[in-house]
Computed example of a mutant assay.
Amino acid sequence: MEFPDHPTTVSRRCFIGGCAAAATVITTGTAAAADTETDTGAQPCGKLPPGTVLAKKADVPLNGGVVVYFDDETSVVVAQPKKGTYTAFDAKCTHAGCMCSEVDNNLIICWCHDSRFSSVDGKRRSGPAKKPLPQIKTKIKGENIVVA
Rank of each mutant, 00 (worst) to 15 (best):
66 V>C: 06
66 V>W: 03
67 V>Q: 11
68 V>I: 15
69 Y>M: 07
70 F>D: 03
71 D>A: 07
71 D>S: 09
72 D>K: 08
73 E>I: 01
75 S>P: 00
77 V>W: 04
79 A>V: 04
80 Q>A: 06
81 P>Q: 05
81 P>N: 08
82 K>S: 13
83 K>D: 13
83 K>G: 04
83 K>W: 03
85 T>L: 13
85 T>H: 11
86 Y>P: 10
86 Y>E: 10
87 T>G: 00
87 T>Y: 00
88 A>E: 07
89 F>I: 06
89 F>S: 12
90 D>L: 01
90 D>P: 01
90 D>E: 00
90 D>F: 01
92 K>G: 01
92 K>Q: 14
92 K>I: 13
93 C>G: 09
93 C>L: 07
94 T>W: 02
94 T>E: 09
94 T>H: 02
95 H>I: 03
96 A>L: 14
98 C>R: 05
99 M>S: 07
100 C>R: 09
101 S>Y: 05
101 S>W: 06
101 S>V: 06
101 S>A: 11
103 V>T: 12
103 V>W: 04
105 N>T: 04
105 N>P: 00
106 N>G: 01
106 N>D: 12
106 N>K: 09
106 N>R: 14
107 L>V: 05
108 I>S: 05
109 I>C: 05
109 I>S: 06
110 C>L: 07
110 C>A: 05
111 W>K: 15
112 C>V: 06
114 D>P: 00
114 D>C: 10
116 R>L: 04
117 F>T: 03
118 S>D: 10
118 S>K: 03
119 S>Y: 02
120 V>L: 14
121 D>K: 05
121 D>L: 03
121 D>E: 10
122 G>D: 07
122 G>T: 02
123 K>Q: 14
124 R>F: 01
124 R>Q: 14
124 R>K: 14
125 R>D: 08
126 S>K: 15
128 P>F: 12
128 P>Q: 11
130 K>W: 07
130 K>R: 15
131 K>S: 15
131 K>Q: 14
132 P>D: 12
132 P>I: 12
133 L>K: 10
134 P>C: 09
135 Q>C: 15
136 I>S: 10
136 I>Q: 15
137 K>G: 09
138 T>Y: 09
138 T>G: 07
138 T>C: 13
